[in-house]
Structure formats: structure tokens, C-alpha cells
Design a protein around this nucleic acid. Structure first.
Lengths: 225, 225
DNA sequence: CACTGATCTTACGAATTAATAAAGATAAAG
DNA sequence: CTTTATCTTTATTAATTCGTAAGATCAGTG
């Protein structure tokens, strides 16, 4: 999942990022209310983890903004205050979970999983698309009953394709989502060819139609039409 | 989209162009205030990306000029200065977004997308014209339920026709919008015939009426009357 | 109706972009 | 520390698109 962390205590945000990276998520961090607003308006995240006490504003206001703009994103509030008021207010305006500092990172992770389940598949814990079936919890993928043998990048690639089915995805867009924003324009995206090729081969090997269409000069499209 | 980049640091402008080309945009670059004024008065752009510090003037003045002339164009400011003043002034006089150097190209792209959304369609993300339907976000076009198979140029051509429906379009006008300023006045525009023909054939193949009327001696018209 | 210039059509080659394979680098596991 | 798996780079081959050129056709004009 792509997660935005809004937390001004650098020690905490660092350790969150470390942990979630290890869990296979892609994290970005901002330290202020203002930065958060900008990020949220420009990019799409699966989930945000937001501290209520920010140096230049309240996390609750950020949530209000998100709801006003009808942005769909999982929301986990983190706060030192443990007042019941805050908790209730947070959940009332649309947050999904509330964590009181200090908390165990595994708690955060559990909440994330619950959000993941909710957004990825409606209740079920599988993601089915024609003959393809993903079990994100377990990082596994099937074509009918055959399990695909995928590396992490290949799995992420497939997941990204599936969650953007029928849309054209540029190589830069792929790079941004799978490799984060640490890419330079000078870099070439040649390695993507390799991953695409490997994913295609594995899908084909397990008897899957080639849904990954190349859009010459632009990118790729996972085409189910 | 057709985008004018006004940035005197050649390294930066080059990498911007590279990136945006990859995203399917058409870019032109100028390096000075004066050149920018000239371009803006002569041609039409969907968006400009303007550095505030230009060798012969201020990007802010350029924006003022644009507003004074009531030219409609998306404006993204790029600046090394991070003073709040500049930012506020830029946005106040009518810029849409502000980027502080250094920035990631994906950020710029996100801003462009937001502008694109605003100008392309009012709320909806489809562009419907009789039996033709465009989804600019996805670079796709349909005739009723049949998807058209178009190359980049063909798609752009169709989009340009549609956004200038019922207007006469000269070959020079077409060349300017689809090929930018990389054309010499001495060049002939014969290659346009080929693209027009290919587009017509694909439209016809998918059962579309021939809306592209030839105006002998003048150009073309996408005629819906 | 024939002439002229504009437009259409077709086919081909250069340039760009993508796919593949294999080697090298990096990271994870034993 | 060694081994293994995964990721990235590099080089080669294949595919697609764009634009050119040349001939055919069409519209306007005297």
C-alpha cells in the first residue's frame, strides 16, 4: 500500500517508515499540516497516518478537508492526547482508527491490514479478476488454481496493474508507484522492461491470457475489455 | 496537453521536457522573459511552467501580462526562492500552483494533471460528441462501444478536432498544435495528409460517420452540423 | 473540357521504442 | 562468509510509428 505519514516527531516517523517498509509498504512522510494538504491534493494514497498535533494545524482539520473533497483514503489517527473527546471526534468525522501514543508498531500494522482488507476487496480477503486471483494478505497470486511464482516486484507490479485496470500507465507512473519518489529524470526506466517481461512470462506459463497491453510510446495497460 | 516551459536552467528544462514527453505532452521551451512573451502572444498553450527568476525579467510579470490579456492558460510557478511572499503573490495574481526547487518531476506532473482535469471537462471525465467518446485521462477513444486503435498522433489529432469542432482548421494550425515549433516555414505539411487519412480510416472502420470535412484550399473542419 | 494546383492514397525506410537474453550488482538467507 | 535469489544494467534483436516520396485523384478555373 502507498501510505502517507503526517507526523512531526522525526524519531517516531522514522521508525514507522522503517517498520512499514519492512512490511512491504511504500511510505512518504511530511512533517506539517501544509505539506500534508499539498500531498493529498496531488497524489493518491491508500492510507494516511496522521498525528493530531501538528506544528501548524490540527490533524482533525486535515480529515475534514479530506472528507469535504470526497477523497477516498484510509485514515488512522495518532495522538498523544488520550481524551475521549478527541477520539470520538476523530472517528465521527470519518477516521477509521485511533491510536494513542505510545503504541506498538504492530498495532499500527494491524489497523493498516484492516483498512487494506476493506479497500482492496469488499469484505472478502481475495481480489478476483477473471481467472486471476490475488490474496494480498499473503502476497500470493493465482491463475485459476495454479499459484504464480512471483518476486516482490513482480507481485507489486501485478497488483498495481490490477488496481489500475483499463488505464494507461506510463513508465514514469509505474516507477513512481513501485519505486517511490526517489527516481531521477536522468535515470532510464529500462529495468521496467525486464520486470514486465518476467511477469508476462509467469502469467503465460500458468495459462493466463496476456492482459498486459503495450501502448507504444506511452506505457502499458491492463486491458480487460 | 501543449505546454510552454519558461526556464533558463537548461539542465532543468531539458529534464522537464524529457519527462513530459514521456507522459504524452507536447512541450516547447524558451529561456527568457522576452521569448516567452512572444510565444504567448502568438500561440495557444494549455499550460505554462514558469520560473520566477529569468535573466531578463520576472515570471510574476509574465503572469500579470497573461491575466491582463485575459489569456486562459494553466500556470505553474517554479522558483528557487521559498519566501512565503513570492508564493502568496504568485497565487494571488492568478497562478494555479507553486513548486519550490528542487522538486520531483512527478510533482510537476501531478500539478499538470490537476490543471488538466480542471480545463478538460467540467466535472465529468469524458468528452462526448454524438457517437464519439473520449476519455482523456486514459488516452482512449470510442465510437459507441467500439474502442478506436489510435497512435499518439492520431489520438491528438482527434482530440484537437473535437476541441475545435465546427471551426475551420488550417494545416499550419494543425502543425503548430501537434508538432509545436519544431517546424520550419519552408517545410511542407504534406505528412498531415497521411495522419488525416489514417484517422479517417480508423473512424470509418469502427462505424463512425465522416465528420472530418475537407475545406479545399483552406484546411479541415470537424463538422457536426 | 483540359489544365493546374491541392488533396488523397499507398508503400517504404529511418528513427524511435519495446522485448528479450544474458551478465553484473545487490540484497537476503543459510 | 558463502550461497542463493532477486534486482538492475547492458547489449542485441524485434516491432511500431512517423514522415517522405511518388503516383492517382479531385476541385476549381479559364
Amino acid at each position: 500500500m502507498k501510505i502517507l505519514i503526517i507526523e512531526d516527531e522525526k524519531t517516531l516517523s522514522d521508525s514507522i517508515v522503517d517498520y512499514l517498509d519492512g512490511e512491504g509498504h511504500l511510505c512518504e512522510v511530511v512533517y506539517t499540516f501544509e505539506e500534508a494538504v499539498e500531498k493529498i491534493e496531488l497524489y493518491q494514497y491508500d492510507c494516511i497516518v496522521v498525528d493530531i498535533n501538528l506544528p501548524d494545524g490540527s490533524g482533525l482539520d486535515l480529515i475534514r478537508l479530506i472528507k469535504k473533497r470526497s477523497i477516498t483514503v484510509g485514515i488512522i489517527i495518532v495522538s498523544a492526547r488520550n481524551s475521549l473527546d478527541n477520539r470520538i471526534e476523530g472517528l465521527e468525522i470519518g477516521a477509521d482508527h485511533y491510536l494513542t501514543k505510545p503504541f506498538h508498531l504492530s498495532e499500527l500494522n494491524a489497523h493498516l491490514k484492516s483498512i487494506h482488507r476493506r479497500i482492496s476487496f469488499n469484505g472478502s480477503n481475495e481480489l478476483v479478476l477473471n481467472e486471476i486471483r490475488l490474496i494480498p494478505d499473503e502476497h500470493r497470486a493465482f491463475v485459476l488454481e495454479n499459484e504464480l511464482v512471483l518476486t516482490k516486484k513482480e507481485y507489486e507490479l501485478l497488483l498495481f496493474f490490477i488496481s489500475n485496470k483499463n488505464k494507461i500507465i506510463t513508465k514514469a507512473g509505474l516507477a513512481e508507484h513501485l519505486w517511490g519518489d526517489h527516481m531521477d529524470a536522468a535515470d532510464s526506466y529500462d529495468f521496467i522492461y525486464t520486470h514486465i517481461k518476467n511477469l508476462r512470462r509467469e502469467l503465460l506459463k500458468k495459462g493466463c491470457k496476456d492482459y498486459i497491453k503495450t501502448i507504444y510510446g506511452l506505457g502499458y495497460k491492463f486491458d480487460l475489455t
